[in-house]
Amino acid sequence: MEKARLFDFNLTLPIIVAEFLFLMVALDKIYFAPLGKFMDDRDAAIREKLNSVKDTSGEVKQLEEQAAAVMKAARAEISAALNQMKREVALDLEVKMAEGRKKVEAELAVALENLERQKEETIKALDSQIAALSQDIVKKVLPL
């Protein structure tokens, strides 16, 4: 027998190479091809979901703009309704104040008339008392 050589090329090397190639092809067909297909499908699904999310973001912006427009219109409508209500309340208040003023002025006029009448009655009463007092004074001062 010859001395052992470092690289002995006999029939074992081609058999191991054939086994390696067979194992490589078998693993590619049985394990790596389905795994690659699964990962490609998963990647496609994720991209599709991302694209649909991007597409709906424009729709969401449009809906937000519509909501803002509706809110702005509602605020304007509420503001107009409040202003109209304020005007109506102010007019009603002015009418009630005018009625109150008229009522107070009428009562004041009646009270002033009563005071004027009482003043005239008091003056007449005082005139008659003055006349009576002046006659009493004249009788006491001038004895006749």
Rank of each mutant, 00 (worst) to 15 (best):
Phe22Pro: 03
Glu48Arg: 06
Lys37Gln: 14
Leu50Ser: 11
Ala98Gly: 10
Gly36Tyr: 06
Glu64Tyr: 02
Val95Ile: 14
Ala98Tyr: 10
Leu144His: 13
Leu50Cys: 08
Val138Ile: 03
Leu27Cys: 12
Lys29Trp: 10
Leu27Asn: 12
Ala45Tyr: 10
Ala76Glu: 06
Glu121Ser: 15
Glu116Ile: 04
Asp41Val: 07
Val60Thr: 10
Ile16Arg: 02
Gly100Gln: 10
Val25Asp: 07
Ile137Tyr: 14
Ala132Ile: 06
Asp136Glu: 12
Ser57Ile: 01
Leu23Trp: 14
Pro143Ser: 09
Glu113Cys: 07
Met1Ile: 00
Ile16Asn: 01
Phe20Cys: 13
Met85Val: 06
Leu126Asp: 14
Met71Thr: 11
Ser128Met: 14
Ala109Asp: 04
Ala73Asp: 09
Glu59Asn: 04
Ala76Leu: 03
Ser52Lys: 05
Ile16Ala: 00
Asp8Ile: 00
Val141Met: 11
Glu88Cys: 05
Leu133Arg: 10
Val70Ala: 15
Lys37Asn: 10
Gln84Leu: 00
Ser79Pro: 01
Thr12Leu: 05
Ala132Tyr: 15
Ala125Cys: 12
Ile123Ala: 15
Ala45Ile: 09
Gln84Pro: 01
Ile16Asp: 04
Ile123Cys: 11
Tyr31Thr: 05
Asp127Arg: 14
Asp41Cys: 07
Ala67Tyr: 03
Tyr31Gln: 08
Asp8Val: 04
Leu11His: 11
Ser128Val: 01
Lys3His: 10
Val104Trp: 15
Arg47Gln: 06
Glu105Ser: 09
Gln62Asp: 06
Ala132Ser: 13
Ile30Asn: 13
Lys139Asn: 06
Ile123Tyr: 14
Leu13Asn: 12
Asn83Gly: 02
Leu11Cys: 10
Glu2Ser: 09
Asn10Thr: 08
Leu112Ile: 07
Leu23Lys: 14
Met24Arg: 12
Gly58Pro: 01
Lys103Gly: 14
Val95Phe: 09
Ala125Val: 01
Arg117Met: 11
Thr12Trp: 05
Tyr31Cys: 07
Asp92Ser: 04
Ile137Val: 15
Leu13Asp: 08
Val141Phe: 13
Ile78Lys: 02
Leu126Tyr: 14
Asp41Asn: 11
Asn114Val: 01
Ala90Arg: 01
Ala80Phe: 05
Gly58Trp: 00
Ala33Arg: 15
Glu59Ala: 00
Asn10Phe: 00
Asn114Glu: 02
Asp55Ala: 07
Ala67Gln: 02
Asn51Glu: 00
Phe38Val: 08
Lys103Asn: 15
Phe7Leu: 12
Val60Leu: 03
Ile137Ser: 11
Val17Cys: 09
Leu21Ser: 11
Val53Ser: 03
Met97Val: 12
Gln62Asn: 06
Met1Cys: 09
Ala44Glu: 07
Ala111Ser: 10
